[in-house]
């Protein structure tokens, strides 16, 4: 990696201030950024570590019943502490990477990076989560804007993610054989006012909602309800691990399985 300065502030305010420097870069758990730096593919002047900020960490339940997760909370903590309130989300967190990744990587880091094959974006979008930053609150529907692209401004930090807890939910991930990211992952969440279905890993546009399935499942929450639907391969990713057709097919299979498991 190239040389850089590093700061480790202990408050959100100090972190925001530090990120005001030119070419400064926030560092969460580092599970994407550190390998990128080691490959010399990024050259930040300064890294601002978010790991020493207590107010970014933790899992709690808000008065309205939403599950609130601090942006700096690790996957392992979510897997352990969200299990009672939102088991599908806890299971998703427990299935990311391996124990080393889960003990370093954070929910805020994952959502800020918005890797098109990451797991958390599917949960956030399917849950209609609210992304809370140091500056504002955003609905998940507004937050995700394409591959590695979000509504975050330069230097903006995800401080919390609020998940309305569904009646039933499940995440089904079909692993890419090498990275074990989602080749296609589908999160299905059933709320009193309807069903939301979010798909990761499949689309060239990043995480997206499969609205036809949502409508069908809102009327009849069963795997059979999506049996008659088809997913277009237009805009699906194609690579050595799967063609667009294959990914489109997997969207349906994983959706059916998620509904069955919910």
């Amino acid at each position: 990696m190239y040389a850089f300065d590093i700061e480790r502030p202990t408050t959100i305010a100090d972190a925001v201030a530090a990120l005001g420097a030119e070419d400064a870069q926030a560092l969460g758990g580092g599970q994407t950024l550190i390998p990128t730096l080691k490959q010399r593919l990024a050259m930040p002047s300064k890294l601002v570590s978010l790991t020493a900020i207590p107010e970014l960490k933790g899992v709690c339940v808000a008065d309205d019943g939403a599950l609130c997760i601090g942006g700096g909370t690790t996957h392992a903590t979510v897997a352990a502490q969200a299990a009672a309130h939102y088991p599908a989300l806890a299971a998703l967190a427990g299935g990311i990477g391996d124990p080393a990744v889960r003990n370093r990587g954070t929910i805020g880091g994952s959502l800020a990076n918005n890797d098109p094959a990451a797991c958390y974006p599917a949960a956030a979008l399917a849950s209609g989560a609210t992304i809370v930053t140091n500056a504002r609150q955003m609905a998940a529907d507004d937050y995700f804007q394409g591959l590695f692209t979000t509504a975050l401004d330069e230097g903006e930090i995800i401080t919390e993610v609020r998940f309305p807890v569904p009646d039933r939910a499940a995440y089904m991930k079909f692993q890419q054989p090498a990275s074990r990211f989602a080749l296609t992952g589908v999160f299905v969440a059933k709320y009193a006012d309807g069903v939301r279905v979010a798909v990761t890993g499949a689309s060239e546009g990043g995480v997206f909602r499969w609205t036809e399935a949502e409508a069908a499942l809102s009327a009849d929450f069963s795997a059979d309800a999506v049996a008659g639907l088809s997913v277009s391969s237009n805009g699906m990713m194609g690579d050595v691990h799967g063609t667009p057709d294959y990914r489109a097919h997997l969207v349906k299979v994983m959706t059916k399985r998620a509904v069955a498991a919910a």
């Binding site: 054989p177 090498a178 990275s179 050595v240 691990h241």
Partner: peptide
């Protein structure tokens, strides 16, 4: 038999040049 796939594209770039794409 099931996993390892070494892929060069037509330009000779090794597209499976890391463990992100080369499945051990």
């Amino acid at each position: 038999a099931l996993l390892e796939n070494t892929v060069y594209d037509e330009n000779g770039q090794l597209t499976s040049a890391s463990y992100m794409d080369y499945a051990m």
